[in-house]
């Protein structure tokens, strides 16, 4: 469970997040949706502590994460996995070394143990025989999967994904979404996913939070979202011509 209470965040006097309150559930894929520039990434990075919030509290279960001291925060980080928008794999390290990296940092495992664990994670995301390749040598979809393997290497309790399927073709995007969903159930994690993709909402949106211009505008489930009267949310959902046509037809019947 992650709970965000009254958080606000500004950069150089421009307020990006405005008094956000939201509850994310354990064992579920919680989605944050909104237009590009609405503040999704800033919200996610504020929750994990990559940005310091101006005010507010962030609970990771019973712990107030943003008020921990440096050392306790660092201990908590072992339980956090994060998938960044571009994958953020380390260019100068091989696929295998990328996954070994958090093990190097946080555990006292032997070399062989680390390698075994890395291979287990890589296998879980269907990356086989790519251990010695560098990130630049594999496709975007593979990079995302390696990044997921790295994120789950330490058996995290919390998983954060920033636009996991941006830049991927629709089929690969669905594969990645499903993988995130499966892992969430397998590891019983609290997962938060940023996306602007309505396909993801329909595929994995256990809980959906809509951010509009830095404010929480709406929240609900993927079933409720299509019943909403909320104007801004409807504009977001039915942004494309195709979806507008479908909606018209549906309203007629």
């Amino acid at each position: 469970m992650i709970e965000v209470q009254n958080i606000s965040k500004s950069f150089n006097n421009v307020q990006v997040l405005k008094d956000i309150n939201v509850h994310f559930e354990k064992g579920k894929t919680n989605l944050i949706i909104g237009q590009s520039g609405s503040g999704k990434t800033v919200l996610l990075k504020s929750i994990v502590g990559l940005h310091d919030v101006d005010v507010g509290k962030i609970f990771f279960d019973e712990v107030i994460f943003n008020e921990l001291n440096f050392k306790d925060k660092k201990d908590m980080r072992k339980q956090i996995g994060m998938l960044f928008q571009g994958g953020a794999l380390f260019d100068s390290a091989t696929v295998e070394d990328n996954v070994i990296y958090p093990l190097d940092m946080f555990t006292e495992m032997t070399k062989a143990e680390k390698r075994d664990r890395a291979n287990e994670c890589l296998k879980r995301v269907n990356i086989i025989n790519a251990n010695t390749l560098y990130p630049a040598e594999i496709s975007g979809g593979m990079q995302k999967r390696v990044a997921i393997a790295r994120a789950i290497a330490l058996n995290p309790k919390y998983l954060f994904c920033d636009e996991p399927n941006s830049g991927l073709d629709p089929q690969t995007a669905i594969l990645i979404d499903d993988l995130i969903k499966e892992l969430t159930i397998e590891y019983n994690m609290t997962t938060i996913v940023n996306t602007h993709d309505m396909n993801s909402v329909m595929e994995i949106g256990d809980k959906v939070v809509f951010i509009y211009k830095g404010e929480k505008w709406w929240e609900g489930t993927k079933h409720e979202i299509f019943e909403t009267e909320n104007n801004e949310l409807n504009n977001f959902i039915f942004a494309s011509k195709l979806s507008q046509e479908i909606r018209k037809l549906k309203n007629k019947t």
Partner: peptide, 17 residues
């Protein structure tokens, strides 16, 4: 700089580095 804009620095920080 490249590590910063491709979020590799964030990835390090998230691992407590």
């Amino acid at each position: 700089g490249t590590m910063r804009v491709t979020e590799q620095i964030d990835a390090l920080e998230i691992m407590g580095v």
